[in-house]
């Protein structure tokens, strides 16, 4: 399995407070990797370092390296990094004043990458890839905000996919969704990995076990354990991991 994204001794701070300590991890291409750990352990900060969003916070600082296909992303144009490494957030956040189709191509329009004639094709293809097209095709001009929570989240994933990213980061993408919508997103994530590398934060260890190929456990800003998901959940090496995933703390 080829390595897609690598961090080397990645550390991060908010002002003087260090929230990430020397995290070194290699994410495999076209695999789903789940990041688990108690609240405040640095998971969100970690993935925000992976597409250079952490540095947007006032007083935020990053040390260490992040390589995408061997190239240091901190030596690249941040916009280019964020195009290649997309992100989906916890709460679905479609642009409320935009239609469904405009939401899908909002990023492309901003970057000026596509011709207008291509956009309809991109909307249809991307909405189909997230399983939303048949549900909304009759009225693509209605507001994205009028969709259900689960549909909105799939729309946001479509918006990220429209940019044709190589890696997609997901920060608890189903935490605000009902079981049926969660199930659809999980199914979509499993499907996405045939083309894209997926890194997902989840507080639901059951979800990590269901959808990921590899799982990493972060605790107090440090990487405690990283392993194939089956081995991780069946026989974790670290007693801290064991205690966390069996619900003894966190």
């Amino acid at each position: 399995m080829a390595t897609k994204l690598v961090t080397e001794k990645l550390s991060a701070w908010f002002g003087k407070k260090q929230v990430l300590k020397d995290v070194s991890i290699a994410f495999e291409e076209r695999q789903v990797t789940a990041l688990v750990g108690p609240s405040g352990c640095g998971k969100s900060t970690f993935i925000r370092c992976l597409n250079r969003m952490h540095e947007l916070n006032p007083g935020a600082r990053v040390d260490g390296k992040v390589f995408l296909d061997g190239l240091d992303i901190y030596g690249m144009d941040p916009m280019e990094v964020r195009r290649k490494i997309g992100m989906v957030f916890q709460k679905p956040n479609p642009f409320p004043n935009m239609s469904i189709s405009d939401n899908v191509v909002a990023g492309i329009r901003l970057s000026g990458d596509a011709r207008k004639s291509d956009l309809d094709e991109i909307v249809e293809r991307t909405l189909k890839s997230v399983g939303l097209y048949d549900e909304v095709k009759e009225d693509l001009k209605r507001s994205g905000a009028s969709l259900s929570g689960g549909q909105q989240q799939r729309l946001c994933i479509a918006r990220a996919l429209a940019m044709q990213p190589e890696v997609i980061l997901m920060d608890e993408p189903t935490s605000s969704l009902d079981p049926a919508s969660t199930s659809r997103i999980e199914e979509l994530i499993r499907k996405l990995k045939s083309e894209i590398t997926v890194i997902i934060i989840t507080h639901n260890v059951g979800q990590a076990a269901r959808i990921s190929d590899k799982t990493a456990f972060l605790y107090l800003g440090e990487l405690i354990e990283y392993n194939d998901t089956k081995a991780f959940f069946e026989s974790p090496k670290s007693p801290i991991t064991e205690r966390y995933i069996t619900g003894r703390f966190g």
Partner: peptide, 9 residues
């Protein structure tokens, strides 16, 4: 309970 680790074993 969807047990994991030692509990699953």
């Amino acid at each position: 309970h969807q047990p994991f680790a030692g509990d699953l074993r």
